[in-house]
Amino acid sequence: MSDQHDISLQALFDEPAQIADDSEFVVRTMQRIDQRQRRSLYIWLAVSGGLIIIASLFALPLEIATFITQSFTTPLFSLGSGWLGWLMAPINNAGALVVLLIRLLRFARPKSSEWRVSLLSF
């Protein structure tokens, strides 16, 4: 200890501690440790349970999405696995049919509105 100390003050600090060994303190401390461990276990269980619930909630939508994706790639006409089948693959499926229907609907919509405008002006 290199720092200068006030001697009389140091003497007061050096007086022996008057805290008796307290077995109750030890018991309370160990109880607190047990409580903390139990709480950690409960938190771990709650987080695990929550993750399982979230996974099960997301499982059904994921299955539906997978089913739709697989359905869209199903060929409409059986053209075999030859060069014609490979060539027509991008348009020979349910997805292509859906895209085609959407394009047709979007193409038809302006015409119907034009028809409505002409009907109103008449």
Binding site: A17, I19, D22, F25, V26, T29, M30
Partner: peptide
Amino acid sequence: KDAFAELVKRRQSLVRHLMR
């Protein structure tokens, strides 16, 4: 845990004195 309880028992006086 028993060993740790023994450590608490032995060191409690010093720690509590400092904290007080």
